[in-house]
Design a protein around this nucleic acid. Structure first.
Lengths: 191, 191, 191, 191
DNA sequence: CATGAATGAGACTTCATTCAT
DNA sequence: CATGAATGAAGTCTCATTCAT
């Protein structure tokens, strides 16, 4: 009995997984607007209507994946946050970590940026609180300058990442981000 | 005869102008995808087919407006560039000028970002050469640090503007940009 | 054992009842075509498939309720019919009774009218025999005129009710029906 | 020049006409809900989209035809109204005329009844004003009784027609209507 | 150059019904 | 008897683009 329920459920989860995978694959290959729901369903080997049993729209899939992804990212930052590095060091590490993850999922974030009208600030705000805490800690320590509103700093911080992600330079991403981080940190640190 | 041609021409230019105005108005009010060519034509009081005598597509209108706008911006920078300020001062002024113009046309730039697949780097690159020249001048003067590739700096520079444009802070735009500029310049200047 | 069956049966009847109630509620609130079987099932807290164990279609539910309702109406007329009033009086009373019941269930009858392709004459025919008997009795008594085919009279009779039901006048239903009845009876009675 | 415009216009009117004809034919043959817009377009030998250049929906076609029809009916009553018959005679004639027209277009009216949520009273109200005038004239003449609100009479009047139209009797329509009219008039006339 | 009716592919979405569990 | 995920046919409607006038 339990097993039967489980089998049905497993099937359901299985469908969800392939549906998501297949959808993202198509989005990345053909583009969001160019991908039709019929195609998705066909590629996932389900009926057109079945798609609607899982999601209300293409946007919905994107939202689902984004949320999942951001949650995972947050989790992977937890460890870093609890570490005993100095605030400047910690911030640098956080930026590099977020940067790396964003780089790995750049296509996803681009899709979301273009096709999800995210209310509130774009993804990245999720991390604002984390950053704020770090910076405040750094200020108390006397590491960071005090004359710039904290929001300005966190926004610029996320701007670094965006800048590196959308860079047209030949410098590889990580190095790119490092350079920008250096500039930024030198401006941020007290003299 | 000449007059006839002139009259025709004036008429034509008149249509072009209203067409562009009306189109941008609709884009901003209803959004790009939600605006149909039929609507544009109707609002401009011309036939649907007539639209195609002026532009090939909705994107085309956007491109046209963007180009015109960037040209104007460039022109308005010329004066600044030729002035006798010190490089750091000059760069700051350029950034604030570009920022202000972008702010005034933010909706336009957002539309372009979303709906124009601009090959090459996004708008802003037009200004890269200008910035590069300024920075090099500043380096020769010993004003700017030398250990960061120039591309990184220009990219970050444009990133400042984007960050201020997309800010969710309550700090007004100009002040916002100023804070970020300060941080950036303090990182850029030689100690 | 018997108890088990009984419990099952009670449960079954319980489901049937809520199913019918919930269905009619939805029909009246949202309209027939706008109500889906999935909604009905959900509102009745049963699975979609379970609906089909009780009815074959939405129409089926309607038919079921209509039949039940007409049967009840007929029953409630029985008494009236067996009473010792004069035919004209009796007919008036029947009309007012039917009218009142129809008024109370107007939504139901409207639904049936629109969505049930009732073979044969619409609901009301069920009462034709009753009326015919009354009128014949009245003719024998010399109460009613003889020069109009009896069908014409019964049809007009039901027409009165429909007219009152669909009236757009501000006169309240019962009064409305009374006026029309008066006109009708004055035409029907022998001078 | 004028002719060219005319040719285009003629074509347009031609399409409209066939579109309407074809639509009504299909509605009557297959039923309203069973007729798809694709079918209509195909039968009218136009593209699916072209349908929408003329009407917004199937209902729209129905409304268009109904309106046209009622206008024509009204026109054809004008003559009768202006004639010098006595009110009772005139009313009888009007009823028979309306009845005949309705009979001829019964399918149309049935379609409208079922599928057009006509705000206000159903078709027939258009004639209310005409009837009211007639009855008032008759009352002044002392032809008609005075103790029944005029609305009740007009409503019943239209009810006669409906009753005859939906009759299940074998008596032919005109005779049917005549019988009901007789009953009605005998109730209406002063003794 | 202007017009705007015609086009028709194709996107989205719904929903009654089935059937394996 | 109950369940509810899967189905996929079918329908509605949009819109960029063309072309005869």
């Amino acid at each position: 009995m339990e097993k039967e329920i489980s089998r049905r459920d497993r099937k359901k989860r299985q469908v969800l997984t392939t549906l998501v995978d297949v959808t993202m694959k198509l989005f990345m290959e053909k583009g969001f607007s160019e991908t039709t729901i019929a195609e998705i369903a066909s590629a996932a080997d389900i009926g057109t209507g079945t798609f609607y049993n899982y999601f209300h729209s293409k946007e919905d899939v994107l939202r689902y994946v984004l949320t999942k992804n951001l949650d995972e990212t947050k989790d992977s930052l937890e460890e870093l946050i609890r570490s005993s590095m100095s605030p400047p060091e910690k911030i640098s590490q956080i930026l590099l970590t977020i940067g790396k993850i964003f780089k790995e999922n750049q296509q996803l974030f681009n899709l979301c940026n273009r096709h999800l009208s995210l209310m509130g600030p774009p993804h990245g705000t999720e991390f604002k609180d984390i950053l704020v805490a770090m910076i405040q800690e750094g200020r108390i320590n006397g590491d960071f300058r005090n004359d710039i509103p904290i929001e300005m700093i966190t926004e610029l911080f996320m701007g670094l990442i965006k800048s590196a992600l959308t860079s047209h330079s030949k410098i590889p991403f990580e190095e790119n981000l490092n350079y920008k981080l250096k500039l930024f940190m030198d401006g941020l640190l007290t003299k």
